[in-house]
Amino acid sequence: MRITMTAALAGLVLLAGCGGGAGLTAAVQGAIAPLVGTQTAPAARGGGAATPVDPATARSVRIAALGASGTATRVVDNGASETFSGPGGFTYTLRDGMLVATRGLGHDLMAADARQSRAALRAGGGSARRVHETLDGMDRIVRSTFDCTVSARGGETIDLGNRKVNARRFDETCQGDGLIFENRYWLDASGGILSSRQFVTQTVAYLRSSGL
């Protein structure tokens, strides 16, 4: 468990105070890192983008509805859950590969319980109930429950940018609260989620996230 601080994020320290989300995350970590002791705050550098991406801690992310696409960097690794910071500073949290929260997207997914869906993926299919929480215009948390069916779609070769891998594809069809959505997952041989397309909220629609 450690706080990572890549140079790419450090470059964004310069943006701190401008309201940019990535700038915020970076600035805060820069200030707090000395306390944690694992990291010294790196000097701010301008050309952060030139720094190579570490495949162990980075993912490629895309939200088609918002036109956001690029590399996401892990900002916190809590073991079972990891939080990544994507282009423009939004963040998303994967718990064992399942999307459980986004921030900085406006209509964020505030929290989710997708444990049954995860279990169904491990079991090779089945039904699951998931809970999503969103925030409404009155600052109240709105809880939605979805009934889902996870089904195996067989093996596919997926392109992770740097490499092509064989994966098992699963589709999860969910219905509830006046909505239907379909999540897709590509699992490796040990059951880990390599790549996925998961529902966020009505406005944001889907977030695609893949390992590199």
């Binding site: 995350t25 970590q29 859950s81 406006g106 209509h107 409404d136 600052d139």
Partner: peptide
């Protein structure tokens, strides 16, 4: 008043929680 034009709001993402071992 109950229909906020930007819904939940466009607040920048906060730093995530770190969980102790």
């Amino acid at each position: 008043p109950t229909e906020r034009p930007y819904g939940p709001g466009l607040d920048p993402a906060p730093v995530p929680v770190k969980i102790r071992a």
